[in-house]
Nucleic acid binder design. Structure first.
Lengths: 269, 269
DNA sequence: CAGTGGTCTAGACCACCAA
DNA sequence: TGGTGGTCTAGACCACTGC
């Protein structure tokens, strides 16, 4: 199983990462459950188990990998903590999805001011309006963010989200052209749920993690027109890079949030 | 130990929360390790183990609470995940502290733009300037945030943080008067490390968790003067409520962040 | 070397869910 | 009723730290 002395059953689950004896002086001990975690991750990104589906039971996986239930349990625990898997007692363990009713718009942290934490969530964007969706060549900046070369084809989308009739979010987003071949304004318009749910079902791209950089800015002429505000209204600029498995960046998104009746909520631990 | 059938050793650790048989129809089953977690939490807030100190070993605690090592392990695991405890292999488990060199300014999410994630952290605020520190009566708003009554005595502090000579953060903060009796501008000025570290050592108040509401705003006259910017410079308004153990609010803080060379960094999972 | 946290196993039993 | 995740135990051994 690894270079360490196998505890009981000889080795098992061939093809398992072994401790590298090369270069680095650190032996880099890797516990069994981490290796199992890696194997499960592989099955996830290979599409063996699809979003929303149940993965095999802990006992099945234990048999498959030839380890004890406790070991696959710990692997699954960590994946569940990362929101890659979802445990449901009595039912099974499921591949997490952005289509899930409970955790829809998981990455949207804008909340109405009259919303005092606790309970599920409230404000699912009432109206969405796709302004633009076109193929362009990646600027140096977009290319860098998405791990492409400048000039590569990317999809550029601009849209406005409104809450109770009030334009509140203006978003520009860039997607790598290859994985999202066939995405059109119509597809976006017709889609009901979250955009990331569409990405899962239509393009097999699952957003797993994201990083945001937030600043305060003033809108330019076009932006202020689209949000129907004056050019002196300060806005939250939220720049997000979203990643799939293996930390591969798959989306760059620049949001402008109107925060006179909403706020960006964050919890610190 | 609880109302469930005790697995091995009869009951143990008297005084343990028992499954409430009253009112609510739900039996509210509480696993052993959760109860242990509660007991450890009690010892933490009672000051039996102080910030920076080591708590008893897992085996000691297991003996003390009359449970197996695995059970206290799971309890400690969760507390460590919440940043209340810090595990160090081979050395012991320690009460987390804001004075820790590694995790100083844990709650400060403002980063210099030329800082591409990864590695510890960089920008510890270069210069800090306490502008004001006075006793006032709590406004309705402050009282509500801190769980006090309007008119109760609170400490109000205003300060400016600068990075490489540039005023960047203007903070107003309010602290409940009672727990922070004796806090003065001098104490704040003389303190070298993070403010939350001072709160721990001088007042026995440990900040455990915080919530922030972020908006984009324009500064008023006084604010723009202190930050040495024009009144049309958009700023990040960061309103934080920090909590000690048991979700007791102990600080309301309003920060104005200049984000022309910095950004607020957030990671989404 | 002893002590601490970290991993792994094997087995028992419980809580929850669906058929 | 059987299957799934969830809890708990007991014991063995490993990795890291400091004396």
């Amino acid at each position: 199983m690894s270079s360490q002395t196998p505890p009981s059953a000889g080795d098992a689950a061939d093809g398992m990462t072994t401790t590298p004896a090369a270069s680095a002086p650190a032996p880099a001990f890797s516990p069994l459950y981490q290796q199992i975690k890696g194997l499960i991750l592989q099955s996830l990104q290979s599409g063996e188990w699809k979003p929303g589906e149940a993965i095999p039971s802990e006992l099945d996986l234990a048999a498959r990998y030839r380890v004890s239930q406790g070991t696959v349990r710990k692997a699954i625990d960590e994946l569940a903590a990362d929101n890659l898997l979802l445990r449901r007692q009595g039912k099974g363990t499921f591949v997490a999805t952005h289509a899930e009713q409970q955790v829809q718009y998981r990455f949207l942290r804008l909340m109405p001011d009259d919303f005092d934490a606790g309970e599920p969530r409230q404000a699912t964007p009432a109206e969405r309006h796709v302004i633009d969706c076109k193929r362009v060549r990646a600027s140096a900046e977009v290319a860098r963010a998405l791990g492409l070369r400048a000039g590569d084809g990317v999809l550029q989308v601009r849209r406005v989200l409104s809450f109770s009739g009030r334009p509140t979010i203006l978003e520009d987003l860039w997607l790598p052209g290859a994985p999202f071949k066939g995405l059109t304004a119509e597809r976006l318009r017709d889609n009901l749920g979250p955009m990331y749910a569409l990405f899962e079902t239509e393009f097999g791209v699952r957003m797993v993690r994201a990083e945001e950089k937030i600043r305060a800015v003033l809108p330019d002429a076009a932006q202020s027109a689209l949000l129907k505000i004056s050019r002196s209204t300060p806005l939250l600029s939220v720049e997000r890079i979203a990643y799939t498995y293996n930390d591969v960046p798959m989306e760059l998104r620049r949001g402008l949030y109107l925060t006179d009746m909403h706020h960006y909520r964050n919890v610190l631990n």
